[in-house]
Design a protein around this nucleic acid. Structure first.
Length: 635
DNA sequence: CCAGACGTTGTT
DNA sequence: GTCTGG
DNA sequence: CCAGACGTTGTT
DNA sequence: GTCTGG
């Protein structure tokens, strides 16, 4: 999971007036700084480490460098550090084999757990070198047989995603400088995303200073609290602390262009809904699902099977042989200017779409059944659709549609905070009290009239070339986006009223012009881990230890976790997934059998291992791996 | 004490 | 480096 | 994560 | 099939 991300912040090419020479100035770091300043408990240092390694890209693969936030014990502050994706253990001497490194682009959450499932390899990192990967989103390929369809997931508010990660430093012979590398942490996919994949990255809520602080605290050793953070936390209580609001689903996921498959392609389009004219219709209904007037019945899947069909077909369009479809050399090393600016990529507006409103009453009823069925299954822990037959395709299509719809329903309460690139200027609440509080009757996903939260398909213009006009251009663009958003919100609000779902009481206090969520948490900022905090940490650690001991003595079993854990909104019973049953903390339950050391019985040096008959693989690989973990003498 | 292992994902 | 197994 | 390659000897 | 490159 999560083998690809986007670092798509705008690259601006400035033309130096006087000389006529042009220089590239990558503004992305600036934007990230801005966001971080609002997000972290404490503003990070102004200077990045290895900032020059930053590359704007919408298709970031393992082994590439990405910005990571970590604590800097020296300066006692946060720093952004460009690190290489793919953890190389600190004790590595020579460059590890690919087969070894690559696979450490991720670290399973249960590999960090205390207890038997915890992997030694990560011990150092999990205790002292936790960090947060900054990305705009991640790609995930949904597999169906041999088919792989790319989907992109990002925060609905367009802010950076904070992905829990660990890093390490290795002095590799071949490299002059010590290598900083990292791995993102994965966990069971949340119910909202498990239709796509069974794993997902651990995300940290942008507003949760406590979590952020704890995660980045280099003096805080691994404990139950940290461990409790490793959950499919993809939903937040936005401005939650107050009244018991419904959790807000923070993510959105949609299909994207297949061209993203190849790491040699790069385009901002990859982070936008797959936008060929061929499936605009589909998108329309996907993003602006309308409630049929007569809808008294259940939710209406935004995707009809008929719509998903072309979607599937078109997906098979091959690239032009060997040619980069963008006709642009996207050479990482080359230059940071990403071509392909497409102002008209902006998805028009809802009007254009609404005209196409397709009524699919016919199959709707059909689907209705299926939907109920599916939901039933999902709730019970889902079933692998009987594997066989062409019917499966249909089924799966339907499942996808339903799953998407389902996940959209979870997003009913969306309220935009800041638009992606805007930021800073917290716009006054003005007319923006579209408290589109569409009451989603909790528990009954089934009967709340569907209303996919309005989705902006705002286009983040990629590279603008030209001069200072750019700024103006962008400003206007933002405004346009905002207007669009307002419009959409207004529309949906009206609908809500019409449907009698307007949340009257919800004239939320946000009226006072208080900016966005983050601020409400920033009240008091004694963040970081100064010495006194260390004391606290130690105390906490002791407490944890004690707790652990007690738990252990009480004959282990469950519950050992999350004492101080925040709210209860992430109690995703990571259900189903037959493959990997939820890892209990119980030391007795070790789903993944530790590599049996037995095989290396003294009597049989090699070859005779009673291992799986899997080709040469295991044995030879082990040899390789071993060679990378040769001890070093130095500290 | 020393020796040896140290990873994830997907698929069946 | 650091933990487990023997 | 997906795409793409998958080899050696000898000569300049 | 399996490994490497990006």
């Amino acid at each position: 999971m999560c083998g690809r991300t986007a670092q798509g912040l705008v690259t601006v090419t400035l033309i130096t007036l006087g000389t006529g020479s042009s220089l590239h100035e990558n503004d992305a770091p600036g934007q990230i700084r801005q966001q971080l300043a609002r997000t972290l408990p404490s503003k990070p240092a102004d200077t990045w480490i290895d900032e020059d390694k930053y590359r704007t890209s919408y298709n970031v693969a393992p082994t590439r460098y990405q910005p990571v936030v970590r604590a800097d014990p020296q300066t006692k502050s946060y720093v952004v550090h460009m690190m290489r994706w793919g953890l190389i253990p600190r004790n590595t001497q020579s460059m590890p084999e690919y087969s070894s490194v690559l696979k450490s682009i991720n670290a399973r959450d249960d590999s960090l757990f205390m207890g038997p499932s915890g992997k030694v390899m990560f011990n150092h990192s999990k205790n002292h070198k936790r960090c947060i990967l900054l990305a705009e989103g991640f790609y995930e390929w949904r597999r169906r047989g041999k088919e792989r369809i790319p989907f992109y997931t990002r925060r609905r508010d367009g802010n950076l995603m904070l992905m829990a990660a660990i890093y390490d430093v290795a002095k590799v012979k071949e490299e002059a400088e010590p290598m900083y590398t990292y791995a993102t942490i994965t966990t069971n996919a949340s119910p909202q995303l498990d239709w796509l994949h069974d794993r997902m990255p651990v995300l940290i809520p942008n507003h949760d200073h406590d979590k952020i602080r704890a995660w980045l605290d280099p003096n805080l050793k691994w404990n139950a609290t940290l461990e409790a953070m490793l959950k499919p936390c993809d939903e937040f209580m936005e401005p939650s602390l107050e009244s018991g609001r419904e959790p807000v689903y923070a993510l959105e996921t949609y299909q994207v262009d297949e061209k993203v498959n190849s790491v040699r392609n790069d385009s901002p389009d990859f982070t936008k809904p797959w936008n060929s004219s061929a499936n605009k219709k589909t998108l329309n209904r996907f993003f602006f699902a309308k409630t049929e007037p007569a809808s008294s019945e259940s939710p209406r899947p935004a995707l009809s099977s008929s719509a998903s069909t072309p979607l599937k077909k078109d997906n098979h369009l091959k690239h032009k042989d060997g040619v980069n479809d963008f006709n642009e050399p996207f050479d990482y090393a080359d230059d940071m200017t990403v071509a392909s600016d497409s102002a008209d990529n902006t998805v028009k507006d809802e009007e254009e779409f609404s005209q196409e409103q397709v009524s699919v009453a016919a199959d709707d009823s059909k689907r209705e059944e299926g939907f109920a069925e599916q939901q039933e299954q999902r709730q019970q822990g889902r079933i692998a659709l009987s594997a066989s037959g062409e019917d499966n395709d249909d089924l799966e299509d339907r499942e996808l549609a339903l799953a998407l719809e389902l996940s959209h329903q979870e997003q009913a309460n969306y309220q935009p905070s800041t638009s992606p690139l805007t930021s800073i200027t917290s716009k006054p609440a003005s007319s923006s009290s579209p408290s589109t509080q569409i009451i989603s009757t909790p528990g009954s996903t089934a009967d709340s009239p569907t209303r996919s939260a309005p989705r902006t398909m705002q286009v983040i213009s990629s590279s603008l070339t030209g001069s200072v006009d750019l700024l103006e251009k962008r400003r206007q663009q933002r405004k346009q986006e905002e207007d669009e958003m307002k419009h959409i919100l207004e529309m949906s609000r009206l609908e809500a009223i019409a449907d009698g779902h307007e949340d009257v009481s919800g004239e939320d206090s946000s009226q006072d012009g208080t900016t966005t969520s983050a601020l409400s948490f920033a009240s008091e900022v004694p963040p970081l881990w100064n010495e006194e905090n260390v004391q606290d940490d130690l105390k906490r650690q002791e407490a944890e230890e004690l707790e652990k001991a007690i738990a252990a003595s009480l004959n282990d079993s469950t519950t050992a976790a999350s004492p101080t854990s925040s709210p209860s909104y992430n109690n995703h019973s990571s259900l189903s997934h037959p493959k990997r049953p939820v890892q209990s903390l119980s030391p007795t339950a070790s789903p993944r059998k530790r590599k049996t050391t037995a095989q290396s019985s003294p009597s049989s040096p090699a070859g005779s291992s009673p291992m799986k008959p899997t080709k040469k693989s295991k044995a030879s690989q082990d040899v390789k791996i071993t060679s990378f973990f040769q001890h070093m003498s130095s500290s």
